[in-house]
């Protein structure tokens, strides 16, 4: 089937299957899956600027449903989310400008592709190392905690000094986040974290949860469940703004995004159901090769050669 907006021909079954697989990942691992969806689109022949914009608008659809569920669970810190939206939008502007600048010199594919390869490979190795390390925590497990809880507690202990230092940065204005249990923190620290997430999101596509979530939990000191809910809520707003910007610059093929979303809607149901049967850090070990697969798909796309439109 020909998609006239991005001027590529792809079998829609591939797109539905891709959305379906990414939907399962979202429901099962709790990740956006942009590290796989974006590279797969690139390998299908979609130009990199369309990959970034289309993947971002695809994230909007997926995040709305999940954010609504977190809202009903009380996992969203609205004050934190609104501050983060400002930082993310600024970061998105930088990312979109970066893509536009690269489009002018016809280097989007190579620059974005190479950065994505580095980021995805790093995620893969980090997750593998973290999953392996977590599974080796018998001492903490014996205190009645699960492997996951033990790992998070240990990481938070390790980062506690740094988190306190971040929370004490003497830059005004400062804000209290009672919903997240933070008495006072500089607005600039929150804006900084969200700015980086926004820039990554609009430059590489997807929600950039791989960089924003660890920053929220370990640097800002936000409780994990609040960080997940707030991040999703914030992604709905910021990814909408980013998608709008990319659409204005002609980087979004909405037909591809909608077809992928149909598969993702079904995949997410299956993924969420599967979590009832599989849990624990070994799941993260299973997840580890997937970003590496994404990096491999980008290498394949770069070797076979596509051109930015």
């Amino acid at each position: 089937m020909h998609f006239p907006i991005s001027d590529v021909t792809i079998n829609p079954i591939y797109l539905i299957c891709l959305g379906f697989f990414v939907g399962i990942l979202g429901g099962f691992f709790g990740v956006g899956g942009s590290f796989l969806a974006g590279p797969a689109l690139f390998a299908f022949g979609v130009p990199m600027n369309f990959v970034v914009g289309t993947d971002l608008i695809h994230i909007v659809g997926k995040s709305i449903v999940a954010a609504r569920k977190h809202w009903t669970l009380g996992n969203i810190d609205l004050r934190l989310a609104l501050i983060m939206v400002a930082g993310t939008i600024a970061g998105i502007q930088v990312g979109v400008s970066g893509i536009e600048a690269l489009k002018k010199i016809n280097r989007v594919d190579w620059v974005v592709g190479l950065i994505a390869i580095v980021v995805y490979t790093s995620i893969s190795f980090f997750v593998a190392w973290e999953g392996w390390r977590t599974s080796k925590l018998p001492a903490l497990k014996s205190k009645g905690k699960t492997e996951d809880q033990s790992a998070v507690s240990k990481d938070k202990m390790a980062f506690r000094k740094f988190t306190r230092w971040i929370q004490r940065i003497p830059l005004h204005p400062r804000v209290s986040l009672p919903h997240s249990g933070i008495k006072s923190i500089s607005v600039w620290a929150i804006l900084g974290v969200s700015f980086i997430g926004g820039a990554f999101s609009s430059f590489l596509g997807g929600g950039a949860g791989y960089i924003r979530m660890p920053c929220m939990v370990y640097l800002l000191g936000i409780p994990t469940h609040i960080a997940v809910g707030t991040d999703l809520f914030e992604i709905v707003v910021s990814a909408s703004v980013g998608s709008f910007q990319h659409a204005l610059h002609g980087n979004v093929d909405i037909l591809i995004a909608l077809i992928m979303q149909t598969g993702a809607a079904i995949g997410a149901q299956i993924g969420a159901t599967l979590t009832q049967y599989f849990t624990g850090p070994r799941i993260r070990l299973a997840f580890a090769p997937l970003p590496l697969l994404g990096a491999g798909l980008i290498i394949y796309g770069l070797i076979t050669g596509h051109h930015t439109r």
């Binding site: 449903v65 998608s243 709008f244 979303q261």
Partner: peptide, 29 residues
């Protein structure tokens, strides 16, 4: 219609694209 919007009315395309995605996600649910 969307292809035509993309080529001739980019602002309209951007608005419709976001609305379609939101409608699909929320409406379908």
């Amino acid at each position: 219609w969307l292809t035509d919007l993309f080529h001739n009315h980019r602002l309209g395309y951007a608005i419709v694209a976001i609305m379609l995605m939101v409608t699909q996600a929320a409406g379908l649910e």
